[in-house]
Amino acid sequence: MTDVSRDRRVINLALTGASGAQYGLRLLQCLVAAGCQVHVMISKAAQIVIATETDLKLPGNTAAQQEALSGYAGAEAGQVIVFGREDWFSPPASGSGEKAPLVICPCSTGTLSALATGASNNLIERAGDVALKERRKLILVPREAPYSEVHLENMLRLTRMGAVIMPASPGFYHNPQSIADLVDFIVARLLDHLDLPQDLMPRWGEERLAARKTD
């Protein structure tokens, strides 16, 4: 099934139907560039959002999606593996599977609700449920405005369960010059939380420290 070495770090990445497909796709590129093996899950709504917001048109079947995303991210053979909506025998579906972090980016408010209430009606929801029950790293990137009381309560509940809520709210203190810079701001924070190296943007204070060293 895969030519990728077992010593690669595994990251589970799910894309759901919130706006902001660019965040998830850019994260996929960066994870591949960092040498990770990426297990990808894509909801039907996410496929529509990707087609609407980007030039990437994903085919309907899982194998073709895997080929398309591997090419998009510049992955080696087997480095990107796509699992279907009801692939209950995939590693993310069980606590006895690969102990990998899960990033849901973007994360729809419907997915937030499902995770907060323990629903497991598809593989993405089950993977989130597994991450919570196994106390694994779970990072959720909601993109909605404004948030209703229900959305906020679900985020609070998930935070108390151990999830990290990282809204797609890029900063501007790094003087972004393009939309890509804004996307990279969020992706850089995600890579930091995954303990992966990144050079998308300097960390706060790094430039000042570098200037002091040259004085």
Score class of each variant (00 low, 15 high):
41 M>E: 15
207 E>P: 04
128 G>E: 09
23 Y>L: 02
201 M>G: 06
126 R>H: 07
65 Q>C: 13
111 T>A: 03
75 A>N: 06
191 L>I: 06
117 T>A: 02
148 S>T: 15
108 S>T: 08
208 R>V: 13
94 S>F: 06
106 P>Y: 00
96 S>C: 10
184 D>I: 12
148 S>D: 03
59 P>H: 08
147 Y>R: 06
157 R>H: 15
197 P>A: 13
158 L>T: 11
166 M>V: 04
78 G>P: 00
168 A>G: 04
34 A>Q: 13
29 Q>I: 02
175 N>Y: 07
142 P>M: 09
135 R>E: 01
42 I>R: 02
145 A>Y: 08
36 C>M: 10
197 P>W: 11
148 S>N: 09
176 P>T: 09
187 V>L: 12
111 T>R: 01
111 T>M: 05
154 N>M: 03
61 N>W: 07
178 S>G: 10
77 A>H: 08
27 L>W: 00
14 A>C: 09
21 A>G: 15
134 E>I: 01
161 M>Y: 03
28 L>C: 01
16 T>S: 11
130 V>N: 02
106 P>D: 01
212 R>M: 10
189 R>K: 15
93 A>C: 04
1 M>I: 11
77 A>K: 13
153 E>S: 14
105 C>G: 05
82 V>D: 03
122 N>E: 01
138 L>P: 05
54 T>R: 12
64 A>P: 03
103 V>Q: 14
26 R>E: 14
120 S>K: 03
162 G>C: 00
179 I>H: 14
116 A>W: 09
181 D>E: 10
93 A>Y: 00
33 A>W: 05
91 P>R: 04
170 P>Y: 07
132 L>I: 05
41 M>D: 15
72 Y>T: 08
33 A>K: 15
142 P>H: 09
105 C>A: 14
29 Q>T: 15
209 L>N: 14
57 K>A: 11
41 M>I: 14
25 L>D: 00
39 H>K: 07
62 T>S: 00
211 A>V: 14
193 H>M: 12
82 V>S: 01
169 S>V: 01
140 L>Q: 06
37 Q>M: 11
197 P>T: 01
130 V>C: 07
199 D>P: 00
22 Q>E: 11
157 R>C: 12
22 Q>T: 07
27 L>F: 01
113 S>D: 12
35 G>K: 13
91 P>M: 13
153 E>G: 09
46 A>Y: 06
